[in-house]
Design a protein around this nucleic acid. Structure first.
Length: 503
RNA sequence: GGCGGCGUAGCCAAGUGGUAAGGCAAAGGUCUGCAAAACCUUGAUCACCGGUUCGAAUCCGGUCGCCGCCUCCA
C-alpha cells in the first residue's frame, strides 16, 4: 500500500516517494532552549515521533535530525534575567527538554546538532550568499536579500506584495526590503560571539536550520517538519537561503506541519502566556494519556486542550489498558493446556486480525490519520473483550492462542503509535509490568495477593462487610479488584485525579 | 487589507460523491452478594441558503460564525 502525505508546499496529499529507496531523511525543528516546553511544543514532537515510528513500521530506514537552537536573543535575555551565562541557560533547558522527551517516550533523533557547533558551516553559507548577491552587509549585520529570490513566498503561499511588513513591527530602515531577514547579527559586548568576515557576531535564527539540515541530510531530503507557525517566516526563509546557496531545488521534498494546541479556542503560546508545561501534565497523567489525546485528532487539525480533554483521553486510555490487562491476566491463568483446534467463530476471528491490521495501515497511509487508526484499535479491543467474555463462559481449547494473537496485535499496533512502549524500547518489553503497575515491587504484589486471598475467604463465608472493607481500602491505595467467575483479579489503576481517593 | 483553515450527535472526533468510524458522557439491560470491568440496546441528515448530479456531509456559488498566519512561537 502506498503512503500519502500532505505536502504544505503543494497543499495536497501526495504519494510519498523518498529520495533514496527504502530510506527516509528527515529534519524536525528542535527547540530554542530557554524554557521548559509546553503542550503545544509537545504535540509537535509527538506527531513527528509517530510519523517516524510509522515509517519504520513500513520498512523504511529513518535518519532523523533535530537541532538545538542554543544561541538566540531569548536565551541571552533569559540569562540576563537570571544572572547566568547564556550557555548555562541553554545547557539547562536542553537537559530539561531531553527529560521531557524521554518521559513522553519520544524516540531520540539520530543526531541532535547544536547551532553553536555548526558555526563554520553557517559562516561558509553566508559568505557564499553574499558572494552570489543574495545577501548584503550592513554594520556587521548580514541580511538576506529577498528580492534576489523570485520564488520567495512559495511555501506560505503569498507574494512579497501581499505581505504587510511593518504592519505589526517597526521596520529596520537599514534593510533594503522590509522582508529581508538577518543571517548574521553583530554582537553587543558581553553577548556570545564568533569571529566572522563581518566582525564578531552570531547566526540569525533561520540560517542555522539550513546549515544543519544541509550538513547532515544534503539538498533535497525527504521530510522537513514542525508546527504550522514555522511555515512563515522560518521555513520560507530556510528555502530561500538553501536554494539560493546551492542553486538547486527543491531543498525539501515534503513539508509537514502540525496544527496548534489551543486553550479555550485560542492558540497556546508563550507570548499569550496561556501555556501548560508538558511536565505539569505528566505529573498528573501518564505519558500515554497525553499521547492519546494528541493522536485522537488528525495532526493538522487544532486541538482544544484542557482538563476535560485530558480526562476524556484518560478514560479512553483506561479502556485500552483494561483490555490488555484482562487479556494478559487470562493468559496467565491459561498457560499450558492448549490445542490448535478452532471453532468456526475462532477461524473468522483469526482472519479478522489481518483485516484489522489492513485497516490500521490504510488509515495511517492516508496522511498519518491516527484518529482513524485508533478507531480501528478500539474496534479490535471490543472484539477481544467480547471473545474474552465468551471464553470465560464457554472455554475452548484454542482460547489462549487466540487471546495471545489478539493481544499481540493490539500491542503491535499501539506501539506503532508509541503507546505502551517501555522506556527501554525493547521489542519484547512486557506489557504486564506497564499495565499492572511498574512502581510496585514483587513483594508489594505478594502482599496484595495475600489481601485478595483473605478477602476471598471472607466472601466464601459470606462476610461481605469484611470483603467490601478490603476492596474499599485497596481502592484507596489505587488498587482495583475485579471479581470474576474464576477468581479475583487486581491491578494498580494509577494516580490520576478522581482515582484512589474515594472516601 | 492579503493568504489559509474550520463549522458533523450532549462533548471530542473520523469520513470529502452512493444514504454517517471511534472515544467520552447519559439512559435501560445482561453478568454480580454488592461493586468494578466487559457486553447488548438507545441518538445526528452533517452551520444556513441556492446550484451541479440518478445520488452530496462530501463538488460549485453565496450567507453567517469561529480560528490561524502575515512579529518571536511547535
Amino acid at each position: 500500500m502506498t503512503l500519502k502525505v500532505h505536502n504544505t508546499m503543494t497543499r495536497r496529499k501526495e504519494e510519498f516517494v523518498p529520495r533514496e529507496e527504502g530510506k527516509v531523511y528527515m529534519y524536525v525543528c528542535g527547540p530554542t532552549v530557554y524554557n521548559y516546553i509546553h503542550v503545544g511544543n509537545g504535540r509537535a514532537y509527538l506527531v513527528f515521533d509517530v510519523i517516524r515510528r510509522y515509517l519504520r513500521y513500513k520498512g523504511y530506514e529513518v535518519f532523523c535530525v533535530q537541532n538545538f537552537t542554543d544561541v538566540d536573543d531569548k536565551i541571552i535575555n533569559k540569562a540576563k534575567e537570571e544572572g547566568k551565562s547564556p550557555e548555562e541557560i541553554a545547557r539547562f533547558y536542553e537537559r530539561a527538554f531531553l527529560e521531557d522527551m524521554a518521559a513522553l517516550r519520544v524516540i531520540p533523533p539520530s543526531v541532535t546538532p547544536r547551532a553553536t557547533e555548526t558555526i563554520p558551516e553557517i559562516i561558509e553559507m553566508i559568505r557564499t550568499l553574499v558572494e552570489k548577491g543574495h545577501a548584503y552587509v550592513v554594520d556587521g549585520d548580514v541580511y538576506f536579500r529577498v528580492t534576489s529570490f523570485p520564488e520567495y513566498g512559495k511555501l506560505s503561499g503569498r507574494s512579497l506584495e501581499e505581505m504587510r511588513a511593518g504592519e505589526r513591527v517597526e521596520v529596520d530602515e537599514r534593510k533594503e526590503h522590509p522582508m529581508d531577514f538577518a543571517l548574521w547579527k553583530a554582537s553587543k559586548p558581553g553577548e556570545p560571539s564568533w569571529d566572522s568576515p563581518w566582525g564578531p557576531g552570531r547566526p540569525g535564527w533561520h540560517i542555522e536550520c539550513s546549515a544543519m539540515s544541509l550538513k547532515y541530510l544534503g539538498m533535497g531530503f525527504d521530510i522537513h517538519g514542525g508546527g504550522q507557525d514555522l511555515i512563515f517566516p522560518h521555513h520560507e526563509n530556510e528555502i530561500a537561503q538553501s536554494e539560493a546557496y546551492t542553486g538547486q531545488k527543491p531543498f525539501v521534498r515534503y513539508w509537514i506541519h502540525n496544527g496548534f494546541v489551543n486553550i479555550r479556542e485560542e492558540k497556546m503560546s508563550k507570548s499569550l502566556g496561556n501555556i501548560v508545561l508538558v511536565r505539569e501534565v505528566l505529573q498528573r497523567y501518564p505519558a500515554d494519556v497525553m499521547r492519546l489525546l494528541v493522536l485522537q485528532t488528525h495532526y493538522r487539525s487544532p486541538i482544544d486542550f484542557g482538563e476535560e480533554a485530558l480526562e476524556e483521553a484518560s478514560r479512553a486510555y483506561e479502556r485500552l489498558e483494561n483490555c490488555l490487562f484482562a487479556l494478559g491476566e487470562y493468559l496467565e491463568r491459561h498457560q499450558g493446556a492448549v490445542s490448535p483446534m478452532r471453532t468456526q467463530r475462532e477461524v473468522s476471528l483469526s482472519d479478522s486480525f489481518f483485516e484489522f491490521e489492513r485497516r490500521f495501515e490504510e488509515a495511517m497511509d492516508d496522511d498519518f490519520n491516527t484518529a482513524r487508526a485508533l478507531a480501528v484499535i478500539f474496534e479490535l479491543v471490543k472484539e477481544m473483550n467480547t471473545y474474552l467474555q465468551e471464553q470465560e463462559a464457554f472455554p475452548t481449547p484454542a482460547g489462549p492462542i487466540l487471546v495471545e494473537q489478539g493481544r499481540d496485535l493490539i500491542l503491535r499496533l499501539c506501539r506503532v503509535l508509541g503507546l505502551f512502549d517501555t522506556p527501554s524500547g525493547g521489542e519484547t518489553c512486557e506489557v504486564d509490568e506497564e499495565v499492572k503497575g511498574a512502581e510496585a515491587g514483587p513483594r508489594i504484589e505478594a502482599l496484595v495477593d495475600l489481601l485478595v486471598e483473605v478477602r476471598s475467604r471472607a466472601r466464601a463465608r459470606k462476610d461481605y462487610e469484611m470483603a467490601d472493607f478490603i476492596r474499599e481500602r485497596l481502592k484507596d491505595l489505587g488498587i482495583r479488584l475485579d471479581d470474576l467467575r474464576e477468581g479475583t483479579r487486581w491491578k494498580f489503576v494509577g494516580s490520576g485525579p478522581g482515582k484512589g481517593t474515594s472516601n
